[in-house]
Design a binder for these strands. Structure first.
Lengths: 126, 126
DNA sequence: CAGAATCCAATCAGATACTG
DNA sequence: CAGTATCTGATTGGATTCTG
């Protein structure tokens, strides 16, 4: 991820990664980030709620995914000093604003999945 | 990629992959597909034109990426019986329709990249 | 020019076990 | 409950070489 398709000036001191698209897609393009964001779009969730909601994610991967999303400012993590411990994950404004283009993509995928499956089946190698 | 976030009936015989979002994102979420689609959004391109246009892609990866995009029905591959050989890649209607949500995502990434970079810098681990 | 084949390194993702 | 640590196998991506 080094090439830039961006209108942002590359001399901007705040930006270390030169290409926003590659940078953003490296994050949300992984196996789980979109699923987590989708789950959190409805409501604030606790760790194990997310595990159940998503269904087939390991705690390991959920943990890593949440940490990255938190680092990138998509979600917040709130720890309550209780016993047993309670931790809640919630979308930030940035996270919520991301839902707009993300859900457009989801709708496209939903609408065109059948066409893609058909294309795969009718594709003649060579 | 097994969990479904879809409104499409899972009993649909044409669909082998149960989740459109995961399925689609597994394809375009890779390192290069979006870059190739972006390059082809302007005009039909030949193989080495794409290599130059994208800049840091190896012929190997470009070849693989193009083949998958062709299989999924995003692009067409046209071989001209000339010497030296000429092969042109072009977006299909499906590919062009994908540009709409994709470019919305690109715009979001462009607009919010700075915020993400800042979030990363100010993130205090522990 | 437009690839395919081969080999290799890095990263990803799952299973399992352990912790505060 | 909410994680972390470790190990391991699978997948990705790059470099290099070869070909019609």
């Amino acid at each position: 991820m080094t090439k830039a398709i961006s209108s942002v000036a590359e001399s901007d001191i705040e930006i270390t990664e030169p290409c926003p698209i590659r940078d953003v897609l490296d994050r949300i393009g992984d196996q789980w980030s979109l699923l987590v964001l989708e789950a959190l779009s409805a409501r604030t969730c606790r760790f194990n709620e997310l595990t159940r909601e998503i269904g087939d994610i390991s705690r390991q991967m959920l943990s890593r995914t949440l940490k990255r999303l938190e680092q990138d400012g998509f979600i917040t993590r709130t720890v309550y000093a209780e016993v047993p411990p309670r931790v809640e994950y919630e979308l930030t404004d940035l996270g919520r604003s991301f839902l707009v283009p993300m859900q457009a993509l989801v709708r496209w995928a939903d609408a065109n999945h059948l066409a893609i499956c058909r294309a795969r089946k009718t594709f003649a190698p060579r």
